[in-house]
Design a protein around this nucleic acid. Sequence first.
DNA 1: AGTCTCTGTAACCGTTCTGTTACATAGGCT
DNA 2: AGCCTATGTAACAGAACGGTTACAGAGACT
Lengths: 224, 224
Amino acid sequence: MSAFIVIVEDEEDILELIEYNLEKEGFDTMGFTSTKNVAQLLEEESVDLLIMDRNLPGVEGSEFVAQMRGIGVDTPVIYLSAKNKESDIEEGFDRGGDDYMTKPFNMKELVLRIKAILKRTKKDKTEGKVIYRDITLDLGSRELSIEGNNIELTKLEFDLLHTLISNQNIVLDRDYLLEHVWGGDAIYQDRTVNVAINRLKEKIDPDKSKEYIKTVRGVGYTLC
Amino acid sequence: MSAFIVIVEDEEDILELIEYNLEKEGFDTMGFTSTKNVAQLLEEESVDLLIMDRNLPGVEGSEFVAQMRGIGVDTPVIYLSAKNKESDIEEGFDRGGDDYMTKPFNMKELVLRIKAILKRTKKDKTEGKVIYRDITLDLGSRELSIEGNNIELTKLEFDLLHTLISNQNIVLDRDYLLEHVWGGDAIYQDRTVNVAINRLKEKIDPDKSKEYIKTVRGVGYTLC
DNA sequence: AGTCTCTGTAACCGTTCTGTTACATAGGCT
DNA sequence: AGCCTATGTAACAGAACGGTTACAGAGACT
Protein backbone atom coordinates (compact mmCIF):
# COMPACT_ATOMS: atom_id res chain seq x y z
CA MET A 1 0.00 0.00 0.00
CA SER A 2 2.33 2.67 -1.14
CA ALA A 3 0.93 6.17 -1.09
CA PHE A 4 2.06 9.30 -2.86
CA ILE A 5 2.63 12.14 -0.44
CA VAL A 6 3.45 15.72 -1.36
CA ILE A 7 5.18 17.91 1.20
CA VAL A 8 5.36 21.69 1.09
CA GLU A 9 7.76 23.15 3.62
CA ASP A 10 10.07 26.11 3.13
CA GLU A 11 12.73 25.09 5.61
CA GLU A 12 14.85 22.74 3.61
CA ASP A 13 16.29 20.72 6.44
CA ILE A 14 12.85 20.01 7.87
CA LEU A 15 11.63 19.09 4.43
CA GLU A 16 14.46 16.65 3.97
CA LEU A 17 13.93 15.20 7.40
CA ILE A 18 10.29 14.51 6.65
CA GLU A 19 11.02 13.04 3.25
CA TYR A 20 13.72 10.83 4.63
CA ASN A 21 11.44 9.43 7.32
CA LEU A 22 8.45 8.91 5.10
CA GLU A 23 10.45 7.15 2.44
CA LYS A 24 11.87 4.93 5.13
CA GLU A 25 8.27 4.00 5.85
CA GLY A 26 7.75 3.10 2.23
CA PHE A 27 5.84 6.13 1.03
CA ASP A 28 6.52 7.88 -2.24
CA THR A 29 7.21 11.51 -1.51
CA MET A 30 7.80 14.71 -3.39
CA GLY A 31 8.97 17.80 -1.59
CA PHE A 32 8.57 21.48 -2.43
CA THR A 33 9.79 24.61 -0.71
CA SER A 34 6.96 26.71 -2.08
CA THR A 35 3.49 26.16 -3.46
CA LYS A 36 4.82 26.85 -6.92
CA ASN A 37 4.07 23.90 -9.20
CA VAL A 38 2.14 22.15 -6.45
CA ALA A 39 -1.26 23.25 -7.69
CA GLN A 40 -0.68 21.70 -11.06
CA LEU A 41 0.56 18.51 -9.46
CA LEU A 42 -2.51 18.21 -7.26
CA GLU A 43 -4.81 18.69 -10.20
CA GLU A 44 -3.12 16.29 -12.52
CA GLU A 45 -1.64 13.56 -10.41
CA SER A 46 -3.28 11.29 -7.94
CA VAL A 47 -1.87 12.64 -4.70
CA ASP A 48 -2.91 10.71 -1.62
CA LEU A 49 -1.91 13.23 0.99
CA LEU A 50 -0.57 16.75 1.24
CA ILE A 51 1.62 17.86 4.11
CA MET A 52 1.53 21.61 4.19
CA ASP A 53 3.38 24.16 6.25
CA ARG A 54 1.07 26.89 7.44
CA ASN A 55 3.76 29.54 7.62
CA LEU A 56 5.13 29.75 4.14
CA PRO A 57 6.62 33.03 3.01
CA GLY A 58 4.12 34.75 0.75
CA VAL A 59 1.12 32.46 0.53
CA GLU A 60 -0.71 31.24 3.58
CA GLY A 61 -0.71 27.44 3.47
CA SER A 62 -4.32 27.22 4.42
CA GLU A 63 -5.20 29.83 1.85
CA PHE A 64 -3.60 27.73 -0.79
CA VAL A 65 -5.53 24.66 0.27
CA ALA A 66 -8.75 26.66 0.26
CA GLN A 67 -8.10 27.58 -3.35
CA MET A 68 -7.44 23.97 -4.20
CA ARG A 69 -10.72 22.94 -2.61
CA GLY A 70 -12.33 25.59 -4.73
CA ILE A 71 -11.32 23.84 -7.90
CA GLY A 72 -12.36 20.46 -6.68
CA VAL A 73 -9.14 19.05 -5.28
CA ASP A 74 -10.02 17.08 -2.18
CA THR A 75 -6.66 15.66 -1.23
CA PRO A 76 -6.48 15.28 2.54
CA VAL A 77 -4.08 17.64 4.28
CA ILE A 78 -1.92 17.60 7.36
CA TYR A 79 -0.90 21.09 8.36
CA LEU A 80 2.35 21.87 10.07
CA SER A 81 2.64 24.99 12.10
CA ALA A 82 5.10 26.61 14.43
CA LYS A 83 2.30 28.26 16.29
CA ASN A 84 0.06 26.29 18.51
CA LYS A 85 -2.43 28.89 19.45
CA GLU A 86 -5.94 27.62 19.70
CA SER A 87 -7.24 30.06 17.12
CA ASP A 88 -4.81 28.78 14.57
CA ILE A 89 -5.78 25.21 15.08
CA GLU A 90 -9.43 25.94 14.67
CA GLU A 91 -8.88 27.98 11.58
CA GLY A 92 -6.90 25.18 10.07
CA PHE A 93 -9.69 22.74 10.58
CA ASP A 94 -12.38 25.08 9.48
CA ARG A 95 -10.85 25.45 6.12
CA GLY A 96 -11.26 21.79 5.42
CA GLY A 97 -7.91 20.46 6.57
CA ASP A 98 -7.86 16.99 7.96
CA ASP A 99 -5.24 17.14 10.62
CA TYR A 100 -2.87 19.49 12.30
CA MET A 101 0.52 19.24 13.88
CA THR A 102 2.61 21.86 15.62
CA LYS A 103 6.34 22.13 15.22
CA PRO A 104 8.48 20.77 16.63
CA PHE A 105 6.73 17.49 16.13
CA ASN A 106 7.45 13.88 16.77
CA MET A 107 8.18 12.01 13.57
CA LYS A 108 6.55 8.86 14.88
CA GLU A 109 3.35 10.73 15.52
CA LEU A 110 3.40 12.21 12.06
CA VAL A 111 3.71 8.76 10.52
CA LEU A 112 0.87 7.45 12.65
CA ARG A 113 -1.37 10.32 11.64
CA ILE A 114 -0.52 9.79 8.02
CA LYS A 115 -1.43 6.15 8.21
CA ALA A 116 -4.67 6.98 9.98
CA ILE A 117 -5.68 9.46 7.32
CA LEU A 118 -4.78 7.19 4.45
CA LYS A 119 -6.75 4.39 5.98
CA ARG A 120 -9.75 6.60 6.57
CA THR A 121 -9.88 7.97 3.07
CA LYS A 122 -9.45 4.63 1.47
CA LYS A 123 -12.09 2.89 3.49
CA ASP A 124 -14.64 1.22 1.30
CA LYS A 125 -15.20 -1.69 3.53
CA THR A 126 -17.34 -3.98 1.46
CA GLU A 127 -18.87 -6.57 3.63
CA GLY A 128 -20.96 -9.55 2.80
CA LYS A 129 -20.38 -12.96 1.37
CA VAL A 130 -18.74 -14.26 -1.71
CA ILE A 131 -19.85 -17.59 -3.07
CA TYR A 132 -18.32 -19.95 -5.58
CA ARG A 133 -19.68 -23.45 -6.14
CA ASP A 134 -19.85 -24.93 -2.65
CA ILE A 135 -17.40 -22.41 -1.22
CA THR A 136 -18.68 -19.55 0.88
CA LEU A 137 -16.39 -16.79 2.01
CA ASP A 138 -17.76 -14.56 4.75
CA LEU A 139 -15.94 -11.28 4.49
CA GLY A 140 -17.16 -10.03 7.84
CA SER A 141 -16.16 -12.94 10.01
CA ARG A 142 -13.45 -13.96 7.57
CA GLU A 143 -14.66 -17.52 7.63
CA LEU A 144 -14.51 -20.05 4.88
CA SER A 145 -16.97 -22.85 4.66
CA ILE A 146 -16.94 -25.59 2.11
CA GLU A 147 -19.98 -27.84 1.92
CA GLY A 148 -20.91 -26.45 5.30
CA ASN A 149 -17.63 -27.26 6.99
CA ASN A 150 -15.57 -24.46 8.40
CA ILE A 151 -11.95 -24.30 7.39
CA GLU A 152 -9.36 -22.09 9.00
CA LEU A 153 -7.41 -19.86 6.69
CA THR A 154 -4.55 -17.53 7.40
CA LYS A 155 -4.86 -13.92 6.41
CA LEU A 156 -2.84 -14.43 3.27
CA GLU A 157 -4.80 -17.49 2.24
CA PHE A 158 -8.07 -15.74 2.85
CA ASP A 159 -7.10 -12.68 0.83
CA LEU A 160 -5.81 -14.86 -1.96
CA LEU A 161 -8.97 -16.92 -2.17
CA HIS A 162 -11.04 -13.76 -1.97
CA THR A 163 -9.21 -12.32 -4.95
CA LEU A 164 -9.59 -15.51 -6.93
CA ILE A 165 -13.30 -15.80 -6.24
CA SER A 166 -13.91 -12.15 -7.04
CA ASN A 167 -12.32 -12.75 -10.40
CA GLN A 168 -13.66 -16.18 -11.21
CA ASN A 169 -13.36 -17.26 -14.82
CA ILE A 170 -10.51 -14.84 -15.26
CA VAL A 171 -6.98 -16.10 -15.30
CA LEU A 172 -4.92 -14.04 -12.88
CA ASP A 173 -1.22 -13.90 -13.49
CA ARG A 174 1.35 -13.86 -10.75
CA ASP A 175 2.03 -10.17 -11.04
CA TYR A 176 -1.61 -9.33 -10.60
CA LEU A 177 -1.85 -11.52 -7.55
CA LEU A 178 1.33 -10.14 -6.04
CA GLU A 179 0.06 -6.64 -6.46
CA HIS A 180 -3.44 -7.22 -5.16
CA VAL A 181 -2.90 -9.75 -2.42
CA TRP A 182 0.58 -8.99 -1.22
CA GLY A 183 0.50 -5.26 -1.87
CA GLY A 184 2.13 -3.32 -4.61
CA ASP A 185 5.30 -2.01 -3.08
CA ALA A 186 7.12 -5.06 -1.84
CA ILE A 187 9.26 -7.18 -4.10
CA TYR A 188 8.95 -10.93 -4.10
CA GLN A 189 10.19 -13.85 -6.09
CA ASP A 190 7.55 -15.29 -8.35
CA ARG A 191 7.68 -18.70 -6.70
CA THR A 192 6.08 -16.99 -3.73
CA VAL A 193 2.71 -17.01 -5.43
CA ASN A 194 3.24 -20.55 -6.42
CA VAL A 195 3.80 -21.80 -2.94
CA ALA A 196 0.97 -19.76 -1.52
CA ILE A 197 -1.46 -21.08 -4.10
CA ASN A 198 -0.50 -24.61 -3.35
CA ARG A 199 -0.82 -24.15 0.37
CA LEU A 200 -4.29 -22.81 -0.29
CA LYS A 201 -5.13 -25.71 -2.61
CA GLU A 202 -4.02 -28.12 0.08
CA LYS A 203 -6.32 -26.54 2.61
CA ILE A 204 -9.47 -26.24 0.56
CA ASP A 205 -9.13 -29.53 -1.29
CA PRO A 206 -6.81 -31.91 0.55
CA ASP A 207 -7.63 -34.96 -1.52
CA LYS A 208 -7.51 -33.08 -4.80
CA SER A 209 -10.92 -34.15 -5.93
CA LYS A 210 -12.53 -30.77 -6.48
CA GLU A 211 -10.01 -28.92 -8.59
CA TYR A 212 -11.20 -25.52 -7.51
CA ILE A 213 -8.05 -23.72 -8.50
CA LYS A 214 -6.86 -24.41 -11.98
CA THR A 215 -3.30 -23.80 -13.05
CA VAL A 216 -2.99 -22.16 -16.42
CA ARG A 217 0.46 -23.05 -17.53
CA GLY A 218 2.54 -20.09 -18.60
CA VAL A 219 -0.05 -17.60 -17.35
CA GLY A 220 -1.31 -17.99 -13.83
CA TYR A 221 -4.24 -19.35 -11.89
CA THR A 222 -8.00 -19.22 -12.10
CA LEU A 223 -11.19 -20.35 -10.47
CA CYS A 224 -13.61 -21.50 -13.11
CA MET B 1 -27.76 8.95 39.34
CA SER B 2 -25.02 10.42 37.29
CA ALA B 3 -26.07 11.47 33.83
CA PHE B 4 -23.94 12.15 30.81
CA ILE B 5 -24.66 15.56 29.33
CA VAL B 6 -23.24 16.94 26.14
CA ILE B 7 -23.12 20.67 25.64
CA VAL B 8 -22.66 22.43 22.33
CA GLU B 9 -22.06 26.14 22.68
CA ASP B 10 -19.72 28.27 20.63
CA GLU B 11 -19.02 30.88 23.25
CA GLU B 12 -16.28 29.35 25.28
CA ASP B 13 -16.89 31.19 28.52
CA ILE B 14 -20.55 30.27 28.56
CA LEU B 15 -19.63 26.69 27.77
CA GLU B 16 -17.22 26.60 30.65
CA LEU B 17 -19.70 28.19 32.97
CA ILE B 18 -22.30 25.57 32.17
CA GLU B 19 -19.86 22.71 32.47
CA TYR B 20 -18.58 23.99 35.77
CA ASN B 21 -22.05 24.23 37.24
CA LEU B 22 -23.29 20.91 35.96
CA GLU B 23 -20.25 19.09 37.18
CA LYS B 24 -20.71 20.65 40.54
CA GLU B 25 -24.14 19.06 40.48
CA GLY B 26 -22.57 15.69 39.82
CA PHE B 27 -23.25 15.34 36.13
CA ASP B 28 -20.73 14.05 33.66
CA THR B 29 -20.35 16.62 30.95
CA MET B 30 -18.58 17.03 27.69
CA GLY B 31 -18.45 20.38 25.95
CA PHE B 32 -18.03 21.26 22.30
CA THR B 33 -17.76 24.58 20.53
CA SER B 34 -19.15 23.16 17.30
CA THR B 35 -21.24 20.19 16.23
CA LYS B 36 -18.14 18.54 14.88
CA ASN B 37 -17.65 15.13 16.48
CA VAL B 38 -20.92 15.46 18.32
CA ALA B 39 -22.91 13.39 15.84
CA GLN B 40 -20.61 10.46 16.26
CA LEU B 41 -20.75 10.78 20.00
CA LEU B 42 -24.52 10.79 20.04
CA GLU B 43 -24.67 7.75 17.85
CA GLU B 44 -22.17 5.71 19.72
CA GLU B 45 -22.35 6.76 23.33
CA SER B 46 -25.23 6.75 25.65
CA VAL B 47 -25.85 10.46 26.02
CA ASP B 48 -28.59 11.37 28.45
CA LEU B 49 -29.10 14.96 27.47
CA LEU B 50 -27.93 17.41 24.88
CA ILE B 51 -27.70 21.11 25.58
CA MET B 52 -27.56 22.85 22.26
CA ASP B 53 -27.06 26.43 21.31
CA ARG B 54 -29.46 27.47 18.58
CA ASN B 55 -27.16 30.11 17.18
CA LEU B 56 -24.05 28.29 16.21
CA PRO B 57 -21.98 29.69 13.38
CA GLY B 58 -22.64 27.59 10.32
CA VAL B 59 -25.06 24.88 11.33
CA GLU B 60 -28.40 25.70 12.86
CA GLY B 61 -28.57 23.87 16.17
CA SER B 62 -32.09 22.71 15.58
CA GLU B 63 -31.18 21.60 12.09
CA PHE B 64 -28.46 19.45 13.53
CA VAL B 65 -30.85 17.88 15.99
CA ALA B 66 -33.33 17.19 13.23
CA GLN B 67 -30.66 15.29 11.38
CA MET B 68 -29.86 13.30 14.48
CA ARG B 69 -33.51 12.40 14.89
CA GLY B 70 -33.43 11.26 11.31
CA ILE B 71 -30.87 8.61 12.07
CA GLY B 72 -32.62 7.42 15.19
CA VAL B 73 -30.93 9.40 17.92
CA ASP B 74 -33.55 10.36 20.46
CA THR B 75 -31.48 12.09 23.07
CA PRO B 76 -33.55 14.80 24.73
CA VAL B 77 -32.46 18.35 24.02
CA ILE B 78 -32.48 21.67 25.80
CA TYR B 79 -32.00 24.52 23.39
CA LEU B 80 -30.24 27.71 24.34
CA SER B 81 -30.93 30.82 22.37
CA ALA B 82 -30.07 34.48 22.55
CA LYS B 83 -33.32 35.33 20.85
CA ASN B 84 -36.54 34.98 22.67
CA LYS B 85 -38.97 35.68 19.90
CA GLU B 86 -42.08 33.62 20.04
CA SER B 87 -41.54 32.17 16.57
CA ASP B 88 -38.18 30.81 17.51
CA ILE B 89 -39.50 29.08 20.54
CA GLU B 90 -42.19 27.40 18.59
CA GLU B 91 -39.83 26.31 15.92
CA GLY B 92 -37.59 24.83 18.54
CA PHE B 93 -40.31 22.70 19.92
CA ASP B 94 -41.65 21.72 16.57
CA ARG B 95 -38.42 20.12 15.62
CA GLY B 96 -38.66 17.70 18.49
CA GLY B 97 -36.68 19.52 21.14
CA ASP B 98 -37.71 18.98 24.68
CA ASP B 99 -37.09 22.29 26.32
CA TYR B 100 -35.98 25.77 25.55
CA MET B 101 -34.09 28.47 27.40
CA THR B 102 -33.17 31.96 26.39
CA LYS B 103 -29.91 33.62 27.16
CA PRO B 104 -29.05 35.09 29.52
CA PHE B 105 -30.42 32.41 31.75
CA ASN B 106 -30.34 31.52 35.37
CA MET B 107 -28.06 28.61 36.08
CA LYS B 108 -30.28 27.34 38.82
CA GLU B 109 -33.18 27.20 36.42
CA LEU B 110 -31.14 25.29 33.91
CA VAL B 111 -30.22 22.69 36.49
CA LEU B 112 -33.84 22.33 37.51
CA ARG B 113 -34.95 21.84 33.95
CA ILE B 114 -32.23 19.29 33.40
CA LYS B 115 -33.30 17.30 36.40
CA ALA B 116 -36.89 17.45 35.29
CA ILE B 117 -36.07 16.13 31.85
CA LEU B 118 -33.81 13.41 33.13
CA LYS B 119 -36.48 12.28 35.52
CA ARG B 120 -39.02 12.17 32.73
CA THR B 121 -36.83 10.25 30.33
CA LYS B 122 -35.33 7.94 32.89
CA LYS B 123 -38.65 6.26 33.38
CA ASP B 124 -39.26 5.15 29.87
CA LYS B 125 -35.66 4.38 29.41
CA THR B 126 -35.95 0.71 28.74
CA GLU B 127 -32.26 0.69 28.24
CA GLY B 128 -31.38 -2.22 26.11
CA LYS B 129 -29.32 -5.12 27.15
CA VAL B 130 -26.89 -6.76 24.85
CA ILE B 131 -26.59 -10.48 25.10
CA TYR B 132 -24.05 -12.86 23.74
CA ARG B 133 -23.98 -16.51 24.75
CA ASP B 134 -24.08 -16.35 28.55
CA ILE B 135 -22.84 -12.79 28.67
CA THR B 136 -25.29 -10.02 29.44
CA LEU B 137 -24.26 -6.41 29.14
CA ASP B 138 -26.61 -3.94 30.72
CA LEU B 139 -26.08 -0.68 28.90
CA GLY B 140 -28.05 1.30 31.42
CA SER B 141 -26.29 0.29 34.57
CA ARG B 142 -23.17 -0.64 32.66
CA GLU B 143 -23.01 -3.97 34.38
CA LEU B 144 -21.74 -7.21 33.03
CA SER B 145 -23.01 -10.54 34.16
CA ILE B 146 -21.74 -13.88 33.02
CA GLU B 147 -23.76 -16.95 33.94
CA GLY B 148 -25.55 -14.74 36.41
CA ASN B 149 -22.41 -13.55 38.18
CA ASN B 150 -21.62 -9.88 38.14
CA ILE B 151 -18.20 -8.88 36.98
CA GLU B 152 -16.70 -5.45 37.37
CA LEU B 153 -15.41 -3.84 34.24
CA THR B 154 -13.62 -0.56 33.81
CA LYS B 155 -15.05 1.94 31.38
CA LEU B 156 -12.60 0.95 28.70
CA GLU B 157 -13.26 -2.72 29.14
CA PHE B 158 -16.98 -2.19 29.04
CA ASP B 159 -16.87 -0.12 25.89
CA LEU B 160 -14.58 -2.60 24.25
CA LEU B 161 -16.82 -5.53 25.07
CA HIS B 162 -19.84 -3.54 24.00
CA THR B 163 -18.27 -2.84 20.63
CA LEU B 164 -17.31 -6.46 20.19
CA ILE B 165 -20.74 -7.73 21.07
CA SER B 166 -22.47 -5.20 18.86
CA ASN B 167 -20.37 -6.47 16.00
CA GLN B 168 -20.33 -10.14 16.78
CA ASN B 169 -19.28 -12.38 13.94
CA ILE B 170 -17.40 -9.54 12.37
CA VAL B 171 -13.66 -9.35 12.70
CA LEU B 172 -12.75 -5.90 13.94
CA ASP B 173 -9.29 -4.71 13.18
CA ARG B 174 -7.24 -2.69 15.62
CA ASP B 175 -7.77 0.56 13.82
CA TYR B 176 -11.51 0.14 13.93
CA LEU B 177 -11.39 -0.56 17.63
CA LEU B 178 -9.07 2.34 18.32
CA GLU B 179 -11.39 4.65 16.47
CA HIS B 180 -14.60 3.43 18.03
CA VAL B 181 -13.59 2.58 21.57
CA TRP B 182 -10.77 5.00 22.23
CA GLY B 183 -12.10 7.80 20.05
CA GLY B 184 -11.12 8.95 16.63
CA ASP B 185 -8.75 11.80 17.23
CA ALA B 186 -6.26 10.41 19.69
CA ILE B 187 -3.25 8.55 18.47
CA TYR B 188 -2.25 5.29 20.05
CA GLN B 189 -0.02 2.39 19.28
CA ASP B 190 -1.95 -0.60 18.12
CA ARG B 191 -0.39 -2.76 20.81
CA THR B 192 -2.65 -0.78 23.08
CA VAL B 193 -5.59 -2.70 21.69
CA ASN B 194 -3.71 -5.86 22.23
CA VAL B 195 -3.18 -5.31 25.90
CA ALA B 196 -6.70 -4.05 26.47
CA ILE B 197 -8.18 -7.08 24.76
CA ASN B 198 -6.15 -9.40 26.88
CA ARG B 199 -7.07 -7.64 30.07
CA LEU B 200 -10.67 -8.03 29.05
CA LYS B 201 -10.18 -11.69 28.20
CA GLU B 202 -8.64 -12.25 31.60
CA LYS B 203 -11.63 -10.71 33.34
CA ILE B 204 -14.41 -12.43 31.47
CA ASP B 205 -12.76 -15.80 31.14
CA PRO B 206 -10.00 -16.23 33.73
CA ASP B 207 -9.49 -19.94 33.18
CA LYS B 208 -9.62 -19.62 29.40
CA SER B 209 -12.31 -22.21 28.99
CA LYS B 210 -14.88 -20.17 27.12
CA GLU B 211 -12.92 -18.57 24.32
CA TYR B 212 -15.32 -15.70 23.90
CA ILE B 213 -12.91 -13.44 22.11
CA LYS B 214 -11.17 -14.95 19.18
CA THR B 215 -7.93 -13.58 17.83
CA VAL B 216 -7.75 -13.47 14.07
CA ARG B 217 -4.08 -13.35 13.34
CA GLY B 218 -3.03 -10.55 11.08
CA VAL B 219 -6.44 -8.95 11.21
CA GLY B 220 -7.96 -8.30 14.60
CA TYR B 221 -10.43 -9.71 17.08
CA THR B 222 -13.96 -11.03 16.99
CA LEU B 223 -16.70 -12.49 19.08
CA CYS B 224 -18.23 -15.39 17.25
C1' DA C 1 -0.15 14.97 49.45
C1' DG C 2 -0.71 10.10 49.26
C1' DT C 3 -2.73 6.00 47.67
C1' DC C 4 -5.00 3.24 44.45
C1' DT C 5 -6.72 2.06 40.15
C1' DC C 6 -6.60 2.34 35.40
C1' DT C 7 -4.26 2.27 31.13
C1' DG C 8 -0.63 3.20 27.58
C1' DT C 9 3.97 1.68 26.43
C1' DA C 10 7.91 -1.20 26.02
C1' DA C 11 10.33 -5.49 26.27
C1' DC C 12 10.55 -10.30 25.94
C1' DC C 13 9.29 -14.72 24.30
C1' DG C 14 6.95 -18.40 22.04
C1' DT C 15 4.19 -19.47 18.12
C1' DT C 16 2.71 -19.19 13.60
C1' DC C 17 3.21 -17.74 9.18
C1' DT C 18 5.50 -17.20 4.93
C1' DG C 19 9.38 -16.30 1.63
C1' DT C 20 13.04 -18.79 -0.13
C1' DT C 21 15.55 -22.52 -1.71
C1' DA C 22 16.33 -26.97 -3.57
C1' DC C 23 14.63 -30.72 -5.65
C1' DA C 24 10.95 -33.54 -7.89
C1' DT C 25 7.47 -33.87 -11.21
C1' DA C 26 4.57 -32.74 -15.10
C1' DG C 27 3.56 -30.67 -19.49
C1' DG C 28 4.67 -29.39 -24.01
C1' DC C 29 7.63 -29.28 -27.90
C1' DT C 30 10.75 -31.30 -31.49
C1' DA D 1 11.81 -40.48 -26.29
C1' DG D 2 14.37 -36.64 -24.84
C1' DC D 3 14.79 -32.10 -23.60
C1' DC D 4 13.37 -27.84 -21.65
C1' DT D 5 10.54 -25.11 -19.02
C1' DA D 6 6.96 -24.43 -15.73
C1' DT D 7 4.97 -25.95 -11.69
C1' DG D 8 4.43 -28.78 -7.39
C1' DT D 9 6.43 -30.17 -3.02
C1' DA D 10 8.97 -30.26 1.13
C1' DA D 11 12.08 -28.26 4.43
C1' DC D 12 14.02 -24.45 6.66
C1' DA D 13 14.90 -20.07 8.65
C1' DG D 14 13.71 -15.60 9.42
C1' DA D 15 10.01 -12.45 10.12
C1' DA D 16 5.78 -11.18 11.83
C1' DC D 17 2.53 -11.43 15.20
C1' DG D 18 0.30 -11.77 19.51
C1' DG D 19 0.42 -12.98 24.61
C1' DT D 20 2.36 -11.73 28.72
C1' DT D 21 4.52 -9.08 32.15
C1' DA D 22 6.46 -5.04 34.19
C1' DC D 23 6.50 -0.34 34.66
C1' DA D 24 5.26 4.46 34.79
C1' DG D 25 2.23 8.25 34.27
C1' DA D 26 -2.49 9.99 34.72
C1' DG D 27 -6.46 10.45 37.16
C1' DA D 28 -9.67 9.63 40.94
C1' DC D 29 -10.47 9.34 45.51
C1' DT D 30 -9.27 9.93 50.48
